[in-house]
Structures are given as C-alpha cells and as structure tokens.
Amino acid sequence: MKTGHHVVVLGAGYTGMFAAIRLARRTRRTGVRITLVNPSELFTERLRTHQIAAGQTLPRHRIPDLLAGTGVVFVHGAATAIDPAARTVAVDRGAAALAYDTLVYALGSSTDTRGVPGAADHAFTLDSPRAAADFAARLDDVAAADGTVTVCGGGLTGIEAAAEIAEARPGLGVTLISQDEPVAAWGAGPARHGARARAHLCRALDRLGVTVKTGARVAKVLPDAVELDNGETVASDACLWTAGVVVPSLARDAGIAVDDRGLVVVDATLRSVSHPEIHAVGDAAAIHMPWGRIHGTCQSGLPTAQYTADTIARLLRGKTVGPFRFGYVHQPVSLGRRDAVIQFTHADDTPRRAHLTGRAAVFYKEKISGSPLTLYRISKRMHLSATLSKGGRATRGVTA
C-alpha cells in the first residue's frame, strides 16, 4: 500500500459521499489521505427535493456530521478548475490549490434550463433544497389566489413533483406537461411491458387532479404562462422545470476527455481514458454496458461509487481490478405520501411484468429514498454493498 497518497473527491452528492466514506474504510490505518470538496455544508437528498417543493420540512444533514469518525477532511467550497498536468484543483474558498494523487470526479448534473426561452428566468428547479423551498414559498401565493401550477417534464422527477404538489394542495390546479406519455421508458419493448404500472400511475395522477398534457414541447416560459410548440398557451402562475439535465464544464475545460454531453469518458474500470488517475462516478461519467448506456440515477450511481472506492484501494495495494458491471432492478416512483408504483426491470432497465402499487409500494419507495443515509452510517463500520445487481448475463461481456 502506498502511504501518503492523497485522494480528492469532488462533489458530496450521493456518489461522492459514498465513495469518500467507503474509501476511508478500505484504506484506514494506511496513511492515505482523503479530502471531500463540496460547495455546501448540507447534504442534499435529491430523492426527496420534490417533497420540499410541496411544502414539507425534511431533516437537515450536515456533511461534516456524516463524515465524523471517517478521517475524511471536508473542504467547504466549489471546485473552479482542474489542472491535470499539475494534479491540482482550485477551490473558490481556498487560498491554495488542492494537490491530488488520485481524483474522484463526482460532480453531478443540474436541471438544464438553457434550451427553452424564459425557462431560466421564469421557472423554478429542484437543484437544491433552497431552490425547492423557494418554489414552495411561491406556491403559498399561488394557492391563495386560486392559481395554477405547471410542471414541465414527464420523467420520474416531474411525475413525483406533480403528484406531491397536488396532494399537498388539493385546491391548486396542477398541469404536468410532457412531450411523451409520462414515464414513456416503461413502454420500451413489447407494448404489454409496464402497461399495468403505467395505468396505475395515470389513475393516481387523475385521482389527485393533475392535468396531463402530452404531444407538444414547451416553446417558451412566460411569467404567467407556458407556450407550447403547437400554439397552445397554458396558464401558469408558477412553473417547475424538470426537463433535461446538464453537467458542469469543469472536466471539458480541463482538457479531460468528455463525450458530447460533457460526461467524462471512462474505460471499463471507470477511469478517465485520457487521465487514468481520474475516476468518474455517477452521472458525471459516460458509462456503457453491453446492453447500452447507464443513465444517471441513485440506483446506478451508488454502485459506481462503491466500485471506484474498492478499485482505488486495490490499485494502491498493487492488485488488479475487474471491470465495472451493473444492471437495473427497479424504477420506484412516489405518487404523493400515500401511493407509489414500483416497476421491476430487467438489467437494461426495460420493464418486467412484476410491479408494486399502494401501501406496499409506499413502504418500498420510502426505504429506497432513505437507504443512502443508512448506507453511509453502516459503511463507517463495515463494508455494505450498494450493488443490487451486476446485470447477470447481460453484462458478462464487459472487458477491462
């Protein structure tokens, strides 16, 4: 084991936090130093930000408290530049750059409001608890005036947000705008796949009074309306934007190899193809399995963090590593506090026939949403796996 080795982890989201904690456990009493850099002292439970947007108050988790006892040093600041040649990271609140031997790039994505005029100026996002709380405060005024709310984006985040808002404020008009049918991915493969889960989801939105508009794209966001590309105008006193994501330009600006979306291009061991001392995890990395590209979710992100922590520890011991393998297991969607739907999936994220709804699904979803924090606490004392599936036969063709 190399001693005095310095590992810098950029980003303390779900993946960066787990990578730092697990690596600390894997390298304890070896002299390896780990530094975790994040712009906020508070850990963001992104799986729950839609609850904050609906007006709920959630517990606050300080990053230094989550790291207590691990030996990981926390730096409160935003990384502003990476110099791969010098192996340094500039941080906005630090006087000196952080030198690293190994870098874990875990800077996740944020909502992309650039492509539609007015979205950046007039729409709210769920990028942080503060942003979600600002939207909730706006809802108070809208509800008092019997106004209307639009949620733009029919993915999992948009559906959860629309349902949560409608349940929390029954008299409020809520419209979910999606180009395709909500959770259209559940329709992949034969038409019968995912049909029952989709039907339950649609019934739940209807029961909650959510109006669903499909078949048109948002062309413009105005202060009091949303214009669609079919010429229709939808009244909107508050617009929540959940359509599309964008990643920071830090890796691209540093000359690290990225794809057309700005994700770090990695090999089968999740190391940068241009700078092997840099490991990328979660939705910061362009990761491909034999069945296709992994999309950024907590379900896939935590296994990448686990794998990377274990990989770095093995490399420092001079051992070889096998390729990263992953397969999806489920797609959990909350529909307010009293309903949910869990679609079980094949490794490539296409739907199986099995699904859960109602109270069983609520219990399942709540356990999933809270599991990262439990994982962090337990991982300080023992090695607990976050990988539910390595994909079976679907990923056995992966080569390093």
Rank of each mutant, 00 (worst) to 15 (best):
R28C: 08
I278M: 08
P276N: 06
H76W: 07
T320W: 09
V321Q: 09
D260E: 07
A340V: 09
L316R: 05
A85C: 13
A195W: 02
G171C: 13
L208D: 14
R114K: 05
A137R: 04
D146M: 14
T30Y: 10
R196W: 07
F124M: 02
G327I: 00
P276V: 07
A123C: 06
R26G: 04
S249M: 05
E366L: 01
C298E: 09
I165E: 07
A254F: 09
F74M: 03
E181D: 11
P170D: 13
A143I: 09
G336H: 05
G194H: 06
H355W: 11
R203Q: 14
G171V: 10
V174Y: 03
Q51W: 03
H193N: 15
T308V: 11
D180V: 07
R22M: 10
L58S: 02
R198P: 12
L315I: 13
A133C: 04
A285N: 04
A251Y: 09
S274C: 04
A168Q: 15
G155V: 15
V212N: 13
G209F: 01
T320H: 12
I256W: 06
G173Q: 15
D283C: 05
A386K: 06
L139E: 09
T157R: 00
I278A: 03
H355Y: 12
A184N: 09
V234E: 05
A257T: 13
Y376G: 13
F324K: 01
R217K: 09
S369V: 03
L67S: 07
L176W: 06
I159C: 11
A254L: 07
A394L: 13
S236D: 05
A99C: 08
G292N: 03
Q51H: 00
S178C: 14
H295G: 10
D65T: 04
R353I: 15
R48Q: 12
I82Q: 07
A133R: 13
G322I: 05
E164S: 14
H279C: 03
A188I: 10
S385Q: 11
V362T: 11
P303E: 01
G336A: 00
L250P: 08
I294P: 08
A216M: 05
G255D: 03
H275V: 13
R337D: 05
V183I: 12
G154D: 08
A347L: 12
R138V: 13
A309K: 01
A137P: 10
S128E: 09
V116N: 07
T88R: 14
A219N: 04
G94E: 06
G370K: 10
A90I: 09
N38R: 09
A286F: 02
R60S: 09
L156P: 15
A400W: 10
V37R: 02
V104Y: 03
G244F: 08
A131L: 00
R29L: 11
F344R: 14
T350Y: 08
G147A: 11
S389V: 06
R207T: 04
H122G: 04
D260I: 12
A137G: 11
G31L: 12
T148P: 14
K213G: 08
